[in-house]
Nucleic acid binder design. Structure first.
Lengths: 253, 253
DNA sequence: GAGTGGTCTAGACCACAGC
DNA sequence: CTGTGGTCTAGACCACTCA
Protein backbone atom coordinates (compact mmCIF):
# COMPACT_ATOMS: atom_id res chain seq x y z
CA UNK A 1 0.00 0.00 0.00
CA UNK A 2 1.08 3.58 -0.27
CA UNK A 3 2.72 3.96 -3.62
CA UNK A 4 5.69 6.26 -3.60
CA UNK A 5 3.69 8.89 -5.44
CA UNK A 6 0.30 9.29 -6.99
CA UNK A 7 1.83 10.01 -10.36
CA UNK A 8 5.15 8.21 -10.14
CA UNK A 9 6.74 11.60 -10.94
CA UNK A 10 7.52 11.23 -14.62
CA UNK A 11 8.14 14.98 -14.67
CA UNK A 12 8.39 17.68 -12.01
CA UNK A 13 5.27 19.28 -10.60
CA UNK A 14 6.24 22.79 -11.62
CA UNK A 15 6.54 21.61 -15.20
CA UNK A 16 3.12 19.97 -15.18
CA UNK A 17 1.77 23.15 -13.64
CA UNK A 18 3.36 25.22 -16.36
CA UNK A 19 1.62 23.10 -18.97
CA UNK A 20 -1.73 23.31 -17.27
CA UNK A 21 -1.44 27.05 -16.87
CA UNK A 22 -0.32 27.51 -20.47
CA UNK A 23 -3.43 25.75 -21.68
CA UNK A 24 -5.58 27.77 -19.33
CA UNK A 25 -4.02 30.98 -20.63
CA UNK A 26 -4.67 29.94 -24.21
CA UNK A 27 -8.28 29.07 -23.67
CA UNK A 28 -9.69 30.91 -20.70
CA UNK A 29 -7.85 34.17 -20.35
CA UNK A 30 -7.43 37.24 -22.48
CA UNK A 31 -4.60 39.75 -22.62
CA UNK A 32 -4.42 42.04 -19.62
CA UNK A 33 -6.63 39.88 -17.44
CA UNK A 34 -5.41 39.44 -13.88
CA UNK A 35 -4.84 35.99 -12.44
CA UNK A 36 -5.76 34.92 -8.91
CA UNK A 37 -2.98 35.66 -6.44
CA UNK A 38 -0.17 33.19 -5.85
CA UNK A 39 -1.45 31.93 -2.51
CA UNK A 40 -4.85 31.11 -3.94
CA UNK A 41 -3.42 29.50 -7.05
CA UNK A 42 -1.05 27.37 -5.02
CA UNK A 43 -3.91 26.23 -2.79
CA UNK A 44 -6.10 25.50 -5.78
CA UNK A 45 -3.46 23.24 -7.32
CA UNK A 46 -2.48 21.72 -4.01
CA UNK A 47 1.18 22.73 -4.14
CA UNK A 48 3.43 24.96 -2.09
CA UNK A 49 3.67 28.54 -3.13
CA UNK A 50 7.32 28.13 -4.09
CA UNK A 51 6.39 25.44 -6.56
CA UNK A 52 3.63 27.51 -8.05
CA UNK A 53 6.07 30.38 -8.36
CA UNK A 54 8.51 28.21 -10.26
CA UNK A 55 5.83 27.61 -12.87
CA UNK A 56 4.94 31.30 -13.04
CA UNK A 57 8.59 32.20 -13.51
CA UNK A 58 8.74 29.95 -16.54
CA UNK A 59 5.67 31.57 -18.02
CA UNK A 60 7.03 35.04 -17.38
CA UNK A 61 10.30 34.02 -19.06
CA UNK A 62 8.29 32.92 -22.06
CA UNK A 63 6.52 36.25 -22.19
CA UNK A 64 3.12 34.85 -21.30
CA UNK A 65 2.74 36.56 -17.95
CA UNK A 66 3.65 39.84 -16.37
CA UNK A 67 4.08 40.09 -12.63
CA UNK A 68 4.25 43.27 -10.60
CA UNK A 69 4.99 43.46 -6.93
CA UNK A 70 2.15 44.98 -5.01
CA UNK A 71 -0.17 44.66 -8.00
CA UNK A 72 -0.61 41.16 -9.26
CA UNK A 73 -0.06 38.83 -12.19
CA UNK A 74 -1.55 39.63 -15.56
CA UNK A 75 -1.68 37.96 -18.95
CA UNK A 76 0.99 39.54 -21.14
CA UNK A 77 0.38 40.70 -24.69
CA UNK A 78 2.31 38.95 -27.50
CA UNK A 79 5.91 40.02 -27.73
CA UNK A 80 6.64 43.08 -29.80
CA UNK A 81 8.99 42.70 -32.72
CA UNK A 82 11.90 45.10 -32.33
CA UNK A 83 14.10 45.73 -35.35
CA UNK A 84 17.76 45.52 -34.39
CA UNK A 85 19.40 44.75 -37.70
CA UNK A 86 18.24 45.92 -41.09
CA UNK A 87 19.32 45.16 -44.61
CA UNK A 88 20.49 48.72 -45.18
CA UNK A 89 22.83 49.40 -42.31
CA UNK A 90 22.76 52.85 -40.88
CA UNK A 91 24.68 54.70 -38.22
CA UNK A 92 23.08 55.05 -34.85
CA UNK A 93 21.35 58.39 -34.63
CA UNK A 94 20.05 58.34 -38.19
CA UNK A 95 16.78 60.14 -38.67
CA UNK A 96 14.62 57.04 -38.53
CA UNK A 97 16.10 55.33 -35.55
CA UNK A 98 14.09 54.54 -32.47
CA UNK A 99 16.63 55.56 -29.85
CA UNK A 100 16.51 58.54 -27.55
CA UNK A 101 19.92 59.88 -26.51
CA UNK A 102 19.99 60.84 -22.84
CA UNK A 103 23.60 61.42 -21.92
CA UNK A 104 27.18 61.39 -23.05
CA UNK A 105 30.41 61.27 -21.09
CA UNK A 106 34.05 60.78 -21.98
CA UNK A 107 35.39 57.79 -20.07
CA UNK A 108 37.46 54.64 -20.46
CA UNK A 109 35.21 51.81 -21.66
CA UNK A 110 35.10 48.29 -20.20
CA UNK A 111 38.12 46.25 -21.23
CA UNK A 112 36.08 44.06 -23.58
CA UNK A 113 34.90 47.13 -25.50
CA UNK A 114 38.38 48.62 -25.63
CA UNK A 115 39.56 45.40 -27.26
CA UNK A 116 36.81 45.56 -29.88
CA UNK A 117 37.61 49.20 -30.60
CA UNK A 118 41.31 48.49 -30.60
CA UNK A 119 41.91 51.45 -28.35
CA UNK A 120 44.09 51.37 -25.29
CA UNK A 121 42.42 49.99 -22.21
CA UNK A 122 42.65 53.29 -20.38
CA UNK A 123 41.92 55.52 -23.31
CA UNK A 124 38.70 57.45 -22.77
CA UNK A 125 36.01 57.25 -25.45
CA UNK A 126 32.72 59.02 -25.96
CA UNK A 127 30.10 56.99 -24.17
CA UNK A 128 26.59 57.76 -25.30
CA UNK A 129 23.64 56.55 -23.27
CA UNK A 130 20.43 55.95 -25.15
CA UNK A 131 17.10 54.34 -24.41
CA UNK A 132 14.41 52.91 -26.56
CA UNK A 133 10.68 52.64 -25.99
CA UNK A 134 7.72 51.24 -27.85
CA UNK A 135 4.41 52.88 -27.14
CA UNK A 136 5.02 53.85 -23.56
CA UNK A 137 7.11 50.94 -22.34
CA UNK A 138 10.89 51.01 -22.10
CA UNK A 139 12.33 48.08 -24.03
CA UNK A 140 16.05 48.67 -24.14
CA UNK A 141 18.99 50.68 -22.90
CA UNK A 142 22.23 51.12 -24.76
CA UNK A 143 25.77 52.26 -24.27
CA UNK A 144 27.38 53.41 -27.49
CA UNK A 145 31.16 53.70 -27.44
CA UNK A 146 32.73 56.07 -29.96
CA UNK A 147 36.51 56.56 -29.99
CA UNK A 148 37.63 60.14 -30.35
CA UNK A 149 39.33 59.21 -33.60
CA UNK A 150 35.92 58.50 -35.14
CA UNK A 151 34.65 62.00 -34.49
CA UNK A 152 37.75 64.18 -34.82
CA UNK A 153 35.83 67.31 -35.74
CA UNK A 154 33.87 67.27 -32.51
CA UNK A 155 34.07 70.69 -30.85
CA UNK A 156 36.11 71.00 -27.72
CA UNK A 157 34.80 69.22 -24.68
CA UNK A 158 33.31 72.34 -23.21
CA UNK A 159 29.87 71.11 -24.10
CA UNK A 160 28.45 69.88 -20.82
CA UNK A 161 27.69 66.20 -20.49
CA UNK A 162 24.14 65.47 -21.45
CA UNK A 163 21.74 64.83 -24.27
CA UNK A 164 23.03 67.76 -26.30
CA UNK A 165 26.54 66.37 -26.39
CA UNK A 166 25.17 62.92 -27.21
CA UNK A 167 23.43 64.34 -30.24
CA UNK A 168 26.60 66.13 -31.29
CA UNK A 169 28.57 62.88 -31.24
CA UNK A 170 25.90 61.05 -33.22
CA UNK A 171 25.76 63.88 -35.75
CA UNK A 172 29.50 63.67 -36.32
CA UNK A 173 29.28 59.91 -36.76
CA UNK A 174 26.95 60.29 -39.73
CA UNK A 175 29.78 61.90 -41.68
CA UNK A 176 31.79 58.69 -41.80
CA UNK A 177 31.15 56.19 -44.59
CA UNK A 178 29.54 53.12 -43.02
CA UNK A 179 30.90 49.94 -44.48
CA UNK A 180 28.97 47.39 -42.51
CA UNK A 181 28.09 46.05 -39.14
CA UNK A 182 28.40 42.82 -37.19
CA UNK A 183 26.07 41.83 -34.40
CA UNK A 184 25.82 39.21 -31.73
CA UNK A 185 23.00 38.29 -29.37
CA UNK A 186 23.26 36.52 -26.06
CA UNK A 187 21.32 36.04 -22.88
CA UNK A 188 22.23 38.10 -19.83
CA UNK A 189 20.71 39.45 -16.68
CA UNK A 190 19.90 43.05 -15.96
CA UNK A 191 22.17 44.85 -13.56
CA UNK A 192 20.74 47.12 -10.92
CA UNK A 193 20.85 50.23 -13.12
CA UNK A 194 19.49 48.64 -16.26
CA UNK A 195 16.79 46.93 -14.23
CA UNK A 196 15.59 50.25 -12.90
CA UNK A 197 15.56 51.81 -16.32
CA UNK A 198 13.72 48.87 -17.86
CA UNK A 199 11.22 48.75 -15.02
CA UNK A 200 12.31 45.28 -13.97
CA UNK A 201 13.97 43.71 -10.95
CA UNK A 202 17.71 43.10 -10.79
CA UNK A 203 18.58 39.83 -12.46
CA UNK A 204 15.74 39.98 -14.92
CA UNK A 205 16.61 38.17 -18.15
CA UNK A 206 17.72 40.43 -20.97
CA UNK A 207 18.99 40.01 -24.49
CA UNK A 208 22.41 41.55 -24.92
CA UNK A 209 23.03 42.84 -28.42
CA UNK A 210 26.56 43.82 -29.34
CA UNK A 211 27.00 45.75 -32.58
CA UNK A 212 30.26 46.64 -34.24
CA UNK A 213 30.18 49.45 -36.83
CA UNK A 214 32.85 49.35 -39.51
CA UNK A 215 34.40 52.09 -41.57
CA UNK A 216 37.51 52.02 -43.67
CA UNK A 217 38.47 48.60 -42.42
CA UNK A 218 38.39 49.49 -38.76
CA UNK A 219 35.82 49.54 -35.98
CA UNK A 220 34.36 53.02 -35.72
CA UNK A 221 31.95 52.39 -32.85
CA UNK A 222 30.58 49.68 -30.63
CA UNK A 223 27.09 49.48 -29.23
CA UNK A 224 26.04 47.30 -26.32
CA UNK A 225 22.27 47.21 -26.03
CA UNK A 226 20.17 45.53 -23.35
CA UNK A 227 16.68 44.45 -24.35
CA UNK A 228 13.94 43.18 -22.06
CA UNK A 229 13.80 39.48 -22.87
CA UNK A 230 10.27 39.03 -21.59
CA UNK A 231 8.61 41.54 -23.89
CA UNK A 232 10.87 41.67 -26.94
CA UNK A 233 11.36 39.62 -30.07
CA UNK A 234 14.43 40.89 -31.87
CA UNK A 235 14.02 41.03 -35.62
CA UNK A 236 16.62 41.05 -38.36
CA UNK A 237 15.57 42.04 -41.85
CA UNK A 238 12.00 42.56 -42.93
CA UNK A 239 10.56 40.50 -40.11
CA UNK A 240 9.69 43.66 -38.23
CA UNK A 241 5.97 43.89 -38.73
CA UNK A 242 5.15 40.23 -38.50
CA UNK A 243 3.23 38.96 -35.53
CA UNK A 244 4.03 35.45 -34.36
CA UNK A 245 1.51 33.87 -32.05
CA UNK A 246 3.38 30.81 -31.05
CA UNK A 247 4.24 29.40 -27.71
CA UNK A 248 7.94 30.08 -27.05
CA UNK A 249 8.11 26.67 -25.52
CA UNK A 250 8.87 24.68 -28.59
CA UNK A 251 6.45 21.86 -29.23
CA UNK A 252 8.07 19.30 -31.44
CA UNK A 253 6.21 17.87 -34.40
CA UNK B 1 17.50 47.67 19.96
CA UNK B 2 17.83 44.95 17.46
CA UNK B 3 17.90 46.60 14.11
CA UNK B 4 15.70 44.97 11.54
CA UNK B 5 18.72 43.72 9.64
CA UNK B 6 22.46 43.92 9.80
CA UNK B 7 22.63 45.47 6.37
CA UNK B 8 19.29 47.28 6.08
CA UNK B 9 18.75 45.18 2.95
CA UNK B 10 19.54 47.66 0.20
CA UNK B 11 19.56 44.74 -2.19
CA UNK B 12 18.62 41.08 -1.92
CA UNK B 13 21.07 38.56 -0.52
CA UNK B 14 21.08 36.40 -3.62
CA UNK B 15 22.12 39.41 -5.64
CA UNK B 16 24.97 40.28 -3.30
CA UNK B 17 25.99 36.65 -3.43
CA UNK B 18 25.95 36.70 -7.19
CA UNK B 19 28.29 39.67 -7.15
CA UNK B 20 30.67 38.09 -4.67
CA UNK B 21 30.74 34.84 -6.60
CA UNK B 22 31.27 36.66 -9.90
CA UNK B 23 34.32 38.35 -8.51
CA UNK B 24 35.59 35.10 -7.08
CA UNK B 25 35.13 33.43 -10.46
CA UNK B 26 37.05 36.21 -12.16
CA UNK B 27 39.97 36.13 -9.80
CA UNK B 28 40.28 32.77 -8.12
CA UNK B 29 38.91 30.17 -10.48
CA UNK B 30 39.83 28.93 -13.90
CA UNK B 31 37.67 27.31 -16.57
CA UNK B 32 36.61 23.78 -15.78
CA UNK B 33 37.40 24.02 -12.10
CA UNK B 34 34.77 22.53 -9.81
CA UNK B 35 33.19 24.61 -7.06
CA UNK B 36 32.42 23.36 -3.56
CA UNK B 37 29.01 21.75 -3.34
CA UNK B 38 25.92 23.81 -2.69
CA UNK B 39 25.51 22.79 0.94
CA UNK B 40 29.05 23.79 1.79
CA UNK B 41 28.83 27.05 -0.12
CA UNK B 42 25.55 27.95 1.56
CA UNK B 43 27.05 27.26 4.97
CA UNK B 44 30.18 29.26 4.14
CA UNK B 45 28.12 32.32 3.22
CA UNK B 46 25.65 31.82 6.02
CA UNK B 47 22.57 31.53 3.85
CA UNK B 48 20.00 28.85 3.13
CA UNK B 49 20.70 26.56 0.25
CA UNK B 50 17.71 27.94 -1.67
CA UNK B 51 19.22 31.41 -1.54
CA UNK B 52 22.61 30.18 -2.64
CA UNK B 53 20.94 28.34 -5.48
CA UNK B 54 19.21 31.52 -6.63
CA UNK B 55 22.62 33.11 -7.05
CA UNK B 56 23.99 30.08 -8.88
CA UNK B 57 21.01 30.10 -11.22
CA UNK B 58 21.82 33.67 -12.20
CA UNK B 59 25.41 32.77 -12.90
CA UNK B 60 24.38 29.76 -14.95
CA UNK B 61 22.00 31.97 -16.94
CA UNK B 62 24.89 34.29 -17.64
CA UNK B 63 26.99 31.41 -18.89
CA UNK B 64 29.50 31.59 -16.05
CA UNK B 65 28.69 28.27 -14.44
CA UNK B 66 27.68 24.83 -15.55
CA UNK B 67 25.77 22.57 -13.18
CA UNK B 68 25.21 18.87 -13.60
CA UNK B 69 23.08 16.73 -11.38
CA UNK B 70 25.07 14.03 -9.73
CA UNK B 71 28.34 15.66 -10.73
CA UNK B 72 28.76 19.19 -9.45
CA UNK B 73 29.16 22.80 -10.43
CA UNK B 74 32.01 23.85 -12.70
CA UNK B 75 33.29 27.09 -14.14
CA UNK B 76 31.99 27.39 -17.70
CA UNK B 77 34.16 28.37 -20.65
CA UNK B 78 33.33 31.62 -22.49
CA UNK B 79 30.31 31.35 -24.72
CA UNK B 80 30.92 30.10 -28.22
CA UNK B 81 29.95 32.38 -31.10
CA UNK B 82 27.49 30.58 -33.34
CA UNK B 83 26.82 32.05 -36.78
CA UNK B 84 23.10 32.16 -37.47
CA UNK B 85 22.86 34.87 -40.10
CA UNK B 86 25.41 35.64 -42.75
CA UNK B 87 25.76 38.39 -45.29
CA UNK B 88 25.41 35.97 -48.19
CA UNK B 89 22.24 34.11 -47.44
CA UNK B 90 22.19 30.46 -48.31
CA UNK B 91 19.62 27.73 -48.20
CA UNK B 92 19.75 25.33 -45.33
CA UNK B 93 21.67 22.25 -46.33
CA UNK B 94 24.30 24.13 -48.33
CA UNK B 95 27.69 22.50 -48.36
CA UNK B 96 29.15 24.68 -45.63
CA UNK B 97 26.38 24.60 -43.12
CA UNK B 98 26.82 23.25 -39.65
CA UNK B 99 23.61 21.27 -39.37
CA UNK B 100 23.17 17.54 -39.33
CA UNK B 101 19.85 16.29 -40.72
CA UNK B 102 18.41 13.47 -38.63
CA UNK B 103 14.86 12.94 -39.76
CA UNK B 104 12.06 14.06 -42.03
CA UNK B 105 8.34 13.50 -41.85
CA UNK B 106 5.34 14.88 -43.71
CA UNK B 107 2.96 16.41 -41.21
CA UNK B 108 0.83 19.49 -40.58
CA UNK B 109 2.96 22.18 -38.93
CA UNK B 110 1.99 24.22 -35.86
CA UNK B 111 -0.58 26.86 -36.68
CA UNK B 112 1.94 29.69 -36.33
CA UNK B 113 4.18 28.10 -38.96
CA UNK B 114 1.29 27.42 -41.29
CA UNK B 115 0.46 31.12 -41.16
CA UNK B 116 4.03 32.10 -42.01
CA UNK B 117 4.09 29.64 -44.89
CA UNK B 118 0.64 30.71 -46.01
CA UNK B 119 -0.42 27.10 -46.29
CA UNK B 120 -3.65 25.75 -44.92
CA UNK B 121 -3.57 24.91 -41.24
CA UNK B 122 -4.09 21.25 -41.85
CA UNK B 123 -1.92 20.96 -44.94
CA UNK B 124 1.02 18.64 -44.32
CA UNK B 125 4.51 19.95 -45.04
CA UNK B 126 7.94 18.35 -45.06
CA UNK B 127 9.30 18.67 -41.55
CA UNK B 128 13.04 18.21 -41.37
CA UNK B 129 14.71 17.67 -38.03
CA UNK B 130 18.31 18.80 -37.75
CA UNK B 131 20.78 19.27 -34.96
CA UNK B 132 23.92 21.31 -34.61
CA UNK B 133 26.99 20.70 -32.51
CA UNK B 134 30.25 22.52 -31.86
CA UNK B 135 33.17 20.33 -30.92
CA UNK B 136 31.27 17.62 -29.14
CA UNK B 137 28.50 19.59 -27.47
CA UNK B 138 24.99 19.89 -28.87
CA UNK B 139 24.10 23.56 -29.20
CA UNK B 140 20.87 23.62 -31.15
CA UNK B 141 17.97 21.67 -32.59
CA UNK B 142 15.87 22.77 -35.50
CA UNK B 143 12.62 22.02 -37.21
CA UNK B 144 12.62 23.10 -40.84
CA UNK B 145 9.23 23.32 -42.51
CA UNK B 146 9.15 23.00 -46.29
CA UNK B 147 5.82 23.12 -48.12
CA UNK B 148 5.43 20.54 -50.85
CA UNK B 149 5.08 23.35 -53.37
CA UNK B 150 8.69 24.34 -52.68
CA UNK B 151 10.05 20.94 -53.66
CA UNK B 152 7.66 19.75 -56.38
CA UNK B 153 10.22 17.47 -58.00
CA UNK B 154 10.65 15.43 -54.86
CA UNK B 155 10.26 11.74 -55.68
CA UNK B 156 7.18 9.99 -54.43
CA UNK B 157 6.88 9.56 -50.69
CA UNK B 158 8.02 6.00 -50.81
CA UNK B 159 11.35 7.07 -49.34
CA UNK B 160 11.16 6.03 -45.69
CA UNK B 161 11.22 8.77 -43.06
CA UNK B 162 14.73 9.43 -41.90
CA UNK B 163 17.97 11.23 -42.60
CA UNK B 164 18.01 10.15 -46.24
CA UNK B 165 14.69 11.77 -46.94
CA UNK B 166 15.78 14.88 -45.04
CA UNK B 167 18.79 15.20 -47.33
CA UNK B 168 16.58 14.74 -50.39
CA UNK B 169 14.33 17.61 -49.33
CA UNK B 170 17.31 19.87 -48.65
CA UNK B 171 18.84 18.97 -52.00
CA UNK B 172 15.67 19.94 -53.81
CA UNK B 173 15.54 23.23 -51.93
CA UNK B 174 18.90 24.28 -53.35
CA UNK B 175 17.35 24.43 -56.81
CA UNK B 176 15.15 27.38 -55.92
CA UNK B 177 16.54 30.90 -56.26
CA UNK B 178 16.95 32.32 -52.75
CA UNK B 179 15.88 35.94 -52.60
CA UNK B 180 16.49 36.65 -48.98
CA UNK B 181 15.75 35.73 -45.42
CA UNK B 182 14.27 37.33 -42.33
CA UNK B 183 15.09 36.27 -38.82
CA UNK B 184 13.90 36.88 -35.33
CA UNK B 185 15.34 35.94 -31.95
CA UNK B 186 13.51 35.58 -28.70
CA UNK B 187 13.88 33.94 -25.33
CA UNK B 188 12.10 30.67 -24.67
CA UNK B 189 12.35 27.60 -22.54
CA UNK B 190 13.28 24.14 -23.71
CA UNK B 191 10.49 21.64 -23.94
CA UNK B 192 11.01 18.10 -22.72
CA UNK B 193 12.25 16.81 -26.07
CA UNK B 194 14.55 19.68 -26.89
CA UNK B 195 15.90 19.59 -23.37
CA UNK B 196 16.89 15.98 -23.76
CA UNK B 197 18.54 16.60 -27.08
CA UNK B 198 20.42 19.63 -25.79
CA UNK B 199 21.51 17.81 -22.64
CA UNK B 200 19.61 20.19 -20.38
CA UNK B 201 16.65 19.99 -18.04
CA UNK B 202 13.14 20.91 -19.12
CA UNK B 203 12.59 24.62 -18.84
CA UNK B 204 16.19 25.51 -19.54
CA UNK B 205 16.49 28.92 -21.19
CA UNK B 206 16.95 28.79 -24.95
CA UNK B 207 17.19 31.28 -27.76
CA UNK B 208 14.48 30.72 -30.32
CA UNK B 209 15.54 31.69 -33.83
CA UNK B 210 12.85 31.88 -36.48
CA UNK B 211 14.03 32.17 -40.07
CA UNK B 212 11.87 32.79 -43.10
CA UNK B 213 13.36 31.94 -46.50
CA UNK B 214 12.02 33.86 -49.48
CA UNK B 215 11.85 32.99 -53.11
CA UNK B 216 9.86 34.62 -55.88
CA UNK B 217 8.03 36.84 -53.46
CA UNK B 218 6.74 34.05 -51.27
CA UNK B 219 7.94 32.11 -48.24
CA UNK B 220 9.63 28.93 -49.41
CA UNK B 221 10.54 27.52 -46.02
CA UNK B 222 10.50 28.34 -42.32
CA UNK B 223 13.08 27.25 -39.79
CA UNK B 224 12.55 27.26 -36.03
CA UNK B 225 15.83 26.68 -34.25
CA UNK B 226 16.39 26.28 -30.51
CA UNK B 227 19.83 27.27 -29.20
CA UNK B 228 21.17 26.66 -25.71
CA UNK B 229 21.12 30.12 -24.17
CA UNK B 230 23.73 29.32 -21.55
CA UNK B 231 26.52 28.34 -23.92
CA UNK B 232 25.74 30.23 -27.13
CA UNK B 233 26.31 33.72 -28.43
CA UNK B 234 24.45 34.09 -31.70
CA UNK B 235 26.36 36.03 -34.32
CA UNK B 236 25.13 37.90 -37.36
CA UNK B 237 27.62 38.90 -40.01
CA UNK B 238 31.36 38.61 -39.64
CA UNK B 239 31.25 38.54 -35.85
CA UNK B 240 31.68 34.79 -35.92
CA UNK B 241 35.26 34.38 -34.90
CA UNK B 242 35.43 37.14 -32.33
CA UNK B 243 35.78 36.23 -28.70
CA UNK B 244 34.12 38.54 -26.22
CA UNK B 245 35.21 38.20 -22.64
CA UNK B 246 32.74 40.41 -20.96
CA UNK B 247 30.40 39.78 -18.10
CA UNK B 248 26.90 39.39 -19.54
CA UNK B 249 25.64 41.33 -16.59
CA UNK B 250 25.98 44.80 -17.97
CA UNK B 251 28.09 47.12 -15.90
CA UNK B 252 27.21 50.69 -16.68
CA UNK B 253 29.92 53.24 -17.31
C1' DG C 1 27.18 3.03 -1.74
C1' DA C 2 28.22 8.16 -1.05
C1' DG C 3 27.81 12.58 -2.93
C1' DT C 4 25.96 15.73 -6.14
C1' DG C 5 22.39 18.95 -7.88
C1' DG C 6 17.00 19.09 -8.51
C1' DT C 7 12.46 19.32 -6.42
C1' DC C 8 9.22 20.39 -2.86
C1' DT C 9 7.29 21.89 1.51
C1' DA C 10 5.27 25.15 5.12
C1' DG C 11 6.11 28.56 7.04
C1' DA C 12 7.97 33.74 7.91
C1' DC C 13 8.89 38.43 6.87
C1' DC C 14 9.75 42.31 3.54
C1' DA C 15 8.85 45.89 -0.23
C1' DC C 16 5.64 47.90 -2.81
C1' DA C 17 0.99 49.67 -4.86
C1' DG C 18 -3.29 51.41 -4.13
C1' DC C 19 -7.18 52.54 -1.47
C1' DC D 1 -4.38 50.04 6.05
C1' DT D 2 -4.81 45.57 3.05
C1' DG D 3 -3.23 42.72 -0.52
C1' DT D 4 0.17 41.73 -3.83
C1' DG D 5 4.49 39.61 -5.38
C1' DG D 6 9.63 39.13 -3.70
C1' DT D 7 12.89 37.13 -0.46
C1' DC D 8 14.48 33.81 2.80
C1' DT D 9 14.61 29.86 5.87
C1' DA D 10 15.37 24.88 7.45
C1' DG D 11 14.33 21.10 6.53
C1' DA D 12 13.04 16.68 3.51
C1' DC D 13 13.26 13.61 -0.26
C1' DC D 14 14.36 12.43 -5.16
C1' DA D 15 17.26 11.57 -9.47
C1' DC D 16 21.41 11.12 -11.06
C1' DT D 17 26.66 10.00 -11.52
C1' DC D 18 30.48 7.63 -10.37
C1' DA D 19 33.68 4.93 -7.79
Amino acid sequence: MGTTQLESVPEPKYWQLRTVLTEALDSEFSVGEILPNERDLAARFGVARATLRQALEQLELEGRLQRRRGVGTTVAPPRVGVAVGSAQHTWPGAADDAWQPTDCVLAPPPAAVADLLETGRDEPVHTVRRSRTTHIQPVATELLYVPRSSVPALPAIDTPSGAARARAVLRELQRLPLEGQDQSVELGSAGAEDARELDRLPGAPVLLVTTRFHTAGRTAAVSMATYRADTCRLTFGAFGGVEIHHDPQRHAS
